[in-house]
């Protein structure tokens, strides 16, 4: 549920990763659509990045920068839901379940935590994950764009498989601290909680749910992180050999 793809943890789903494509790639129409989608998403996250920098320069402080980028953040993070459809329709050859899990966990953090619990919006931890996500996503979406066009600059590839080493832990810390900060307010307000008795005989405690989400980071985070490191070794060393042999 939890560990989002903060550090660009979707290494394995790259359309246009260096391995030869097993199935035939997406058709011309799908490729055109994907290029547009990825260009728009790259631009969107660039807007967020610029918004952050401008607000910081204007204010001279990094507190509460969330409000300056709230709208584009919500819009473009929600737009990532389309990635699940891309996998479902098979125009992107990665696992629907894995992609859904990663996108949903971020959408969850955006809407069900940060948007819903107003009190945490001023926390610095929000900025922590927003910055991590922003850098990750700019690189990731441009990586996809360039790959689709078959002109992937080495720098972008290197960045995609390197920056996560810092960005991923950074994003995860921001996410965890934000959920933690939300806990007392959720308990106080009974947000999204359903209690017995009701005629559906069902109850739900959002407070407990959030704690479970935090616990779920423990097994998931190291797994994704090491998976990324492994991926990094495979992809980057592969290219270096490639270069030498050329």
């Amino acid at each position: 549920m939890a560990a989002s793809g903060s550090g660009g943890s979707r290494a394995d789903n790259g359309y246009g990763s260096q391995q030869p494509r097993r199935r035939k790639g997406p058709g011309a129409l799908a490729t055109a659509y994907l290029v547009i989608y990825n260009v728009v998403m790259t631009a969107g996250w660039l807007v967020i990045a610029v918004g952050l920098v401008r607000a910081y320069l204007a204010k001279g402080s990094y507190h509460s920068l969330y409000y300056s980028i709230e709208k584009p953040l919500k819009f473009f993070q929600t737009g990532a839901l389309l990635e699940i459809l891309h996998c479902a329709f098979g125009i992107v050859p990665s696992s629907v379940v894995l992609t859904a899990f990663q996108v949903m966990s971020r959408v969850f953090l955006t809407w069900a935590v940060t948007h819903s619990v107003k009190e945490v919006q001023t926390e610095d931890s929000v900025l922590l994950f927003v910055v991590a996500w922003t850098i990750t996503e700019i690189i990731r979406y441009s990586f996809y764009t360039f790959s689709l066009l078959n002109h992937l600059p080495y720098l972008i590839k290197w960045a995609r498989y390197t920056l996560f080493i810092v960005l991923y832990p950074m994003g995860v810390s921001g996410e965890l601290l934000t959920i933690y900060a939300a806990l007392p307010f959720v308990r106080q307000s009974g947000l999204y909680s359903i209690s017995l008795p009701n005629k559906y005989n069902f109850s739900f405690d959002y407070y407990t749910f959030l704690i479970l989400v935090m616990i779920s980071y423990i097994p998931i985070f190291p797994q994704l992180y090491f998976h990324m490191l492994h991926q990094r070794r495979k992809v980057l060393s592969h290219t270096e050999e490639h270069k030498k042999s050329e």
Partner: peptide, 12 residues
């Protein structure tokens, strides 16, 4: 847990 809960609500 839900079916036997003391606060169970019988069918409508």
């Amino acid at each position: 847990y839900y079916i036997n809960h003391p606060l169970y609500t019988p069918p409508s």
